[in-house]
Design a protein around this nucleic acid. Sequence first.
DNA 1: GTTGCGCCGGACATCGTGTCCGGACGAGCT
DNA 2: AGCTCGTCCGGACACGATGTCCGGCGCAAC
Lengths: 203, 203
Amino acid sequence: MASITRRRAVSRPASAEAEILAATRRILTEGASFTDLGVQQISTAAGVARSTFYAHFRDKTDLLLRLATEMLSTSFDVASSWEPTEGVDKAAEDFLRILGIYREHAGVLRAIGEVATYDQTVRDFWSQGLARFTERTIEALRVEQAAGRTPADIDLVSAARVIVVGGERAIFDHITSAPPADDATFARELARTWWYGVYRRPA
Amino acid sequence: MASITRRRAVSRPASAEAEILAATRRILTEGASFTDLGVQQISTAAGVARSTFYAHFRDKTDLLLRLATEMLSTSFDVASSWEPTEGVDKAAEDFLRILGIYREHAGVLRAIGEVATYDQTVRDFWSQGLARFTERTIEALRVEQAAGRTPADIDLVSAARVIVVGGERAIFDHITSAPPADDATFARELARTWWYGVYRRPA
DNA sequence: GTTGCGCCGGACATCGTGTCCGGACGAGCT
DNA sequence: AGCTCGTCCGGACACGATGTCCGGCGCAAC
């Protein structure tokens, strides 16, 4: 790596924190429920005292949010690239890539979905993320309608909701119950359903 | 009401239990999180001692399952009626009816979705319900394919997953964030998306 | 009146959470 | 070397929720 001027304590590994993050990711990947996961277990798995946990995270929710933002910053640009003009096959390709990312972060994603159902903070965090995609979808559909390629009588909000919310759930369900070998088939099916069901629905 | 021969204690109201069920339904309808809901709060709301709760329910999960089966037995036949031969407009009508049922039981449904994310028992209960619809959908699609009305290259399992799982989620999301006045529009949109995206997708 | 039953109400053990603090250890400074 | 500061340990504590248990009370049936 590049020769960086030695910084002081600030840039030090802060090992405990990183250890906790890593251990939690590991445990979640193994399929454990985040709700049932106690602070004691996390600390033990990270090789750290329980009190140290609270020195770095306000509570379990704080930890989850940290994990989530970390994940989003790693794989962000992914799903926001597709444009209707690129066609249905490109959409299938993009969905396939999204499936890969979802599989990679399945543990954290599951935890988010879990806590989001009963914790307002996490719910807001996540729905804000989905809202961005919904906005994008609505805008793309509006353009298509204006160009006469998508039927004018489509209700943009409803259609976008079905695509984004329903699609996200279907993807999540798929990766938690089907093998990676089925990903390409599923991605193709999803792309075509949205394409012929919405973007190119017969008038 | 009809003159029924007086039965003994067995047919007595068993008021405490009914009170608990009713109070829980009421609280959930008001939007509270089932996870954050304590046994003490439920008991107080039902006008019953906490120990009485445990005399009727093994724990909170037991209560939720009781509420869920009760709901399903009330409104069961609903969504299993539609056949592809009835067309897209009939599908929209059926979806509208389903939206009504979902709104009616929104509280309990939310609680189930909540607990299902971290409790194996509840998760199994609910996914078993959805699995029935998935089976039906696969079968219906198979018939349509055989008759040449649905493209032969559709992957039945993926398509059914998108329809059932994605649709369920989109419906749930809709009723929790849009007013009833929007129901008809949403139902129409959902029906058309599945119809033109899957059942009548161009070959 | 007596019996049976459903309910009350409170005690109890147990567990997870979040806070606090004294003290150990090590890295860097002087 | 000695000092200091930041990080971490380990354990104590208060609190609240869970699930169990049991003595006692009131009502309705016989």
